[in-house]
C-alpha cells in the first residue's frame, strides 16, 4: 500500500498550503478563529489527516508522522503571527502614530489668466501652421486702422466700431487689424502673422462688452492662397482648439477688408449643438470673423493684387474663454479678484 503514504503526504502538502493561505487572508479575529478550527481544531482537516496515518504501511509511518507534525507546527506559528499582527493593527487603530489623511504643507498656487491661456493656445496652434506673432501700437492712425483696410468712415460699416479719438487722425485702434497693413508694408510675401493685443471700442462695460478687449488677428498672404486653403486652415484650428468632434460652419458676412467674408461658427461646447442659453438656442457659437483679403488692402500696402491672395481672421479670446469656462459676465475677467483667478490656476 505504498500509494497510501504518498497520497497522504500529498494531502498534507495541500493542507499546509491551503491552511497558510486561510490564515494569511484572515482579516479579523473571527476569520482567524474560523481558520484555526478548520485546520487545527479537534475535528479539523489536520486531525483528520493525522488519524489516517494508522492506515499507512508501518515502515513509512514515522516519516509521514514527522511531516504531519511539521505541518501542524507551521500552521501554529503562522496562526500565532497572524493573531499578533491583528492585535497590533487593532491597537494602531486606537492610537495611530501618524494620520496620513492630514493635509500636506501647501504653497500658493499661481496661474495665468484664463484669457491668456486661450490666447496662448490659439497662438500655439497657428504657430504650428507657420504663423509668427507680431505686435503693433495700440495708439494708431486712422490711416492704418481704417483707410488701409478699405474702411470709409462715411460708410455705415464704420458704425460697427465706435472709436476713441485721441487727436486729429490718431485713435485707440478699434481692432488689431491695422498690423495687417504695417506687416505687409514692411515685408514681402510669404506672410503669416498673428497679432494678439488689446483693441478699443466705445462700448460701455457690461456683461458682454468691454471698452478694451483682447483680439487676435491672423493674416496669411502668398501666391496661390485660396478660399479652400483658408477653410482648411481654420478647420484645422477648430479641431485642435475645440476638439476633433467639433463641427464648424462658414457663413457669409461683411468686413470692408475681406472679400469674400465669412463668420465661422463652431458647435456649442455646452450643448453640443442641441441648443442652450450659451448659444442662444442655435447650437452654434460664432468664434471669428474672417475672409479673403480684399484686393483694396493689397493696393494700399503696395502688393500686386493680381499676384497675391490671402486670408485674414480675427477672434475675441475673452468671449471664447467665457464660453469655455461658463463665465456669465465679461467684467469678471478684468476685476482681478483672486478668488476668481484661482479657479483657473
Amino acid at each position: 500500500m505504498t500509494g497510501t503514504a504518498a497520497s497522504l503526504l500529498e494531502r498534507l502538502a495541500q493542507l499546509e498550503g491551503d491552511g497558510l493561505a486561510a490564515i494569511g487572508n484572515a482579516g479579523n479575529g473571527e476569520a482567524l478563529e474560523d481558520a484555526r478550527v478548520a485546520y487545527l481544531g479537534r475535528n479539523g482537516v489536520l486531525a483528520d489527516a493525522m488519524g489516517a496515518i494508522g492506515t499507512v504501511e508501518p515502515e513509512r509511518r514515522p516519516a509521514v508522522g514527522q511531516r504531519a507534525n511539521a505541518v501542524k507546527q507551521a500552521l501554529s506559528v503562522a496562526l500565532e503571527a497572524a493573531s499578533t499582527a491583528l492585535a497590533a493593527a487593532d491597537a494602531d487603530a486606537d492610537h495611530p502614530t501618524i494620520d496620513l489623511t492630514l493635509p500636506g504643507r501647501r504653497t500658493w498656487r499661481g496661474g495665468v489668466h484664463p484669457v491668456t491661456r486661450v490666447i496662448d493656445e490659439i497662438c500655439e496652434i497657428f504657430g504650428d501652421m507657420g504663423f509668427t506673432r507680431v505686435q503693433g501700437p495700440e495708439i494708431e492712425t486712422t490711416w492704418y486702422n481704417f483707410t488701409a483696410l478699405n474702411i470709409s468712415l462715411d460708410h455705415p460699416a464704420a458704425d460697427m466700431m465706435d472709436t476713441f479719438y485721441l487727436d486729429d487722425g490718431v485713435i485707440l485702434r478699434t481692432h488689431t487689424s491695422p498690423m495687417q497693413a504695417r506687416v505687409m508694408e514692411a515685408s514681402e510675401p510669404p506672410v503669416r502673422v498673428l497679432v494678439p493685443g488689446l483693441a478699443y471700442r466705445r462700448d460701455s462695460f457690461d456683461p458682454s462688452h468691454a471698452p478694451a478687449f483682447e483680439q487676435i488677428e491672423g493674416l496669411a498672404v502668398d501666391e496661390g492662397v485660396d478660399f479652400v486653403e483658408f477653410r482648411s486652415a481654420i478647420q484645422t484650428f477648430v479641431r485642435r482648439f475645440f476638439g476633433v468632434d467639433t463641427k464648424s460652419r462658414f457663413r457669409p458676412s461683411f468686413y470692408p477688408f475681406t472679400e469674400p467674408s465669412a463668420e465661422v461658427d463652431v458647435t456649442c461646447s455646452v450643448c453640443h449643438g442641441s441648443g442652450c442659453s450659451t448659444c442662444k438656442r442655435t447650437g452654434w457659437i460664432t468664434i471669428m470673423g474672417s475672409g479673403m483679403v480684399d484686393p483694396a488692402v493689397f493696393e494700399a500696402v503696395g502688393y500686386d493684387p493680381e499676384r497675391y491672395t490671402g486670408y485674414a481672421f480675427g477672434m475675441g479670446p475673452a468671449r471664447i474663454a467665457m464660453v469655455r469656462h461658463g463665465i456669465p459676465d465679461m467684467r469678471l475677467l478684468y476685476e482681478g479678484d483672486t478668488a476668481f483667478l484661482e479657479q483657473f490656476a
Binding site: 504653497t107 500658493w108 498656487r109 499661481g110 496661474g111 495665468v112 489668466h113 484669457v115 491668456t116 495700440e138 488689446l198 478699443y200 462695460f205 468691454a210 471698452p211 478694451a212 483682447e214 475677467l333 478684468y334 482681478g336 483672486t338 483667478l341 484661482e342 490656476a345
Partner: peptide, 10 residues
C-alpha cells in the same frame, strides 16, 4: 504663486 490679472487700460 502669483496670479495673472488683466485690466482695462483706462
Amino acid at each position: 504663486g502669483m496670479l495673472e490679472a488683466r485690466s482695462l487700460s483706462f
